[in-house]
Design a protein around this nucleic acid. Structure first.
Length: 425
RNA sequence: GUGGGUAUAGCUUAGUAGGUUAAAGCGCCAGUUUGUGGCACUGGAGACCGUCGGUUCGAAUCCGAUUAUCCACCCCA
């Protein structure tokens, strides 16, 4: 026996019992996006590395240590997408979708790839559902995106999900804030933990999120971004909050929310849920008004979010919300001998044309074993074709729920109708 | 990248002061009236105890390394 090959680290197979749940989620998310006027876009799994360097940001952790980057045979540097937004913006620009008139509203359901150490709710290949709005600078667009998310969560009957929002301002006000923050922590360097010392140089805002008790004391009195954002950013944020209140959406302002991708500006938000031990983000997003410019097109305001499907499933599991399981079979045709098998082919064809989910024996098992199998797959009806009845064009139909056996005439033109009625019972 | 836990049949697990054919439940297959499922009973297949090396007369059991997996941190969805 040769050694078996297993799935690569951080990847996993979605087996039938689970894939039906994925299918359900994908349908629900897509149809909700459609209700909100979003249309689907599908972009390649891999892109030129340059795209992510310029959008996600060269200093971000995602780019620095988590990308699947390789050189293809043509010598090009290629990267498997670590997130969904960059590719969508690239496509928007490449196909000049902005000429179709604003707003452009797109959604996607994509696999993404990051070279990380796997753990709960985190994989190297993971799926994101996301939506983007291009061409609106208005705070109503920020609210609209959040409305859609709330609508999705309520359709899934998810509760106890907290929405945290923040504004990280525009580039101008943020750089001022960075300066203030740097000065504040720099004076107290000796009290910071090692990771925070590192953060101080790379992204001082991250220090605000540190769990180390020593750093925590300093955080209390640290400057807050909301005191530094400029008047337009402040107004924008105020209005977003206002629109949320109008829609009766509960939120908390969390000035510590810092998104890890460099392209965010102004509004940022996260939907979190409490797990046994830690808080988990199921969905995160925000505005990225400078990104389109950065990728070489006219300045265009934009915003979007990404939702982790694996985390959504975790959350559903956590709240005991059941998703549909495998669909049962309507009709199983049990056969005894070759003649009845040939007849089964024809009957199955008729039934299937009428969209009745039909199966018959493929492994040449005994009748008893076929009955067992029919039971296992949850067949509602079993049609038993025996040699004796075959001559008289008859068979017996068993209702698996009641155990009731009834004779059925195979020539009956109402044969299919009969099955249809019976499978509905 | 840092730290910790775990590795025994398809699944869930038992088995350690080191001792010969490694155990159970579930699942799978077959049988208990030769043509009828669920329940019960009987039997069967299925594991070189993650891998490599070491200690020992002898290792699933002790030691080391390695790989995989889980969890936490970093970071993120």
């Amino acid at each position: 026996m040769k050694p078996i090959i297993k799935a690569a680290k951080g990847t996993r197979d979605i087996l039938p019992e689970e894939s039906c749940k994925w299918q359900f989620l994908e349908n629900l998310l897509s149809s909700e996006a459609a209700i909100f006027g979003f249309s689907q876009i599908r972009t390649p799994v891999f892109e030129h590395t340059e795209l992510f360097l310029r959008s996600v940001g060269e200093t971000s952790d995602v780019v620095q240590k988590e990308m699947y980057t390789f050189t293809d045979k043509g010598g090009r540097s290629i990267t498997l997408r670590p997130e969904g937004t960059a590719g969508k913006v690239r496509a928007l620009i490449e196909h000049a979708l902005y000429n179709r008139g604003f707003p452009i509203k797109l959604y996607y359901f994509d696999s993404c790839y990051r070279y990380e150490k796997p753990q709960a709710g985190r994989f190297r290949e993971f799926y994101q559902f996301g939506a983007e709005i291009y061409g609106s600078a208005s705070p109503i667009a920020d609210a609209e995106l959040i409305y859609m998310l709330c609508s999705i969560f309520s359709r899934l009957r998810i509760e106890r999900l907290s929405l945290e929002i923040n504004s990280i301002g525009c580039q101008e006000c943020r750089s001022e804030y960075h300066k203030a923050l740097y000065d504040y922590f720099d004076k107290q360097k000796m009290h910071l933990c090692d990771t925070c010392l590192n953060r101080l140089e790379r992204n001082p805002m991250r220090i605000l999120d540190c769990k180390n008790p020593n750093c925590n004391g300093l955080i209390e009195n640290a400057p807050i971004i909301l005191n530094f954002i400029c008047k337009p950013c402040e107004d924008h944020f105020k209005q977003v909050k206002n629109y949320l209140e109008i829609a009766n959406i509960a939120y908390t302002v969390n000035p510590k929310i810092v998104r890890g991708l460099d392209y965010y500006t102004r509004t940022v938000f996260e939907f979190k849920f409490e797990d046994m031990c830690s808080k988990n983000t199921v969905c995160g997003g925000g505005r990225y008004d400078k990104l389109l410019e950065e990728l070489g097109t006219a300045p265009t305001p934009a915003l979007g979010f990404g939702m982790g499907i694996e985390r959504l499933l975790m959350l559903l599991e956590n709240q005991g919300i059941k998703l549909p399981s495998l669909e049962a079979c309507d009709l199983y045709i049990a056969t005894i001998g070759e003649n009845s098998r040939i007849l089964a082919l024809n009957l199955a064809k008729i039934a299937r044309e009428a969209s009745i989910k039909t199966e018959y024996d493929l492994v040449e098992r005994s009748l008893k074993a076929q009955m067992k199998y029919a039971d296992k797959i949850g067949a509602k009806l079993v049609l038993v074709l025996g040699d004796e009845e075959l001559e008289k064009k008859q068979a017996s139909l068993k209702n698996m729920k009641t155990g009731e056996l009834s004779p059925i005439h195979l020539d009956d033109e109402f044969f299919v109708d009969l099955l249809k009625i019976q499978t509905k019972i």
